[in-house]
Amino acid sequence: MRKINAVLFKEILYLIQKDLVLEWRQKYAFNGMLLYVGSTVFVCYLSFGLRQFSDDSGPIWNALLWIILLFTSVNAIAKSFMQENRGRLLYFYSIVSPQGIILAKIVYNTLLMLLLALICFVFYAFVLGNPVQDIPMFLLSLLLGAVGFSTSLTMISGIASKAANSSTLMAILSFPVIVPMLLMLIKMSKNAMDGLDRGASLDELLTLLAINMIVVTVSYILFPYLWRS
């Protein structure tokens, strides 16, 4: 048993390394995402004119940031399985276990999302002003958001990549699954924005962790069935 675990762990490390190297070599994908984030934030700035911050625009600031992050992550993660061509998938199929692939993809997408979310937050706060009072807590909610989005979207992207019109399908399959997570994240980050006592967000924090764990476990169990086809 321990030996299998060690093999799985090694596989995951190799696959993450492979994804990172691929990303590094074809920088256009990552740069594209950066530009996507940047232009979305700028469009929001131009169309909402939120620079002059009043007390009641806090919820809008928060909701807008999360909506930008949601669309960014759907776009960034959608390509995680569609990008690979058939031949390469067949090659992976013959040498690594499906569990290794899904876990590696989840970890890799989490790293990607963390980076994107951080850049997005910094740029957003720079352009639209920063009303956040409890920055560490807000960053924690960004972290949970990145983990949550990447775990659930990776599996959905695997499902959607098998179908015909995968980009539309990606959106309609993922939004209902993401919404509970999104609502809780918005609530938690709003608490952090207002600088509330950290204990106030404990419920959301635990529920988010629990949902993430459920999603990862279900992905781990279900992915082999998806992979086989």
């Binding site: 179908a163 509970p180 629990a210 459920i214 279900l222 086989r228």
Partner: peptide, 21 residues
């Protein structure tokens, strides 16, 4: 096969929605 996978995945994500939120 794929819709069965999605069905199980979505149901696991729906339960927290209906009972915890």
């Amino acid at each position: 096969r794929i819709s069965a996978v999605y069905n199980i995945f979505a149901f696991a994500a729906l339960i927290p929605l209906l009972f915890i939120l």
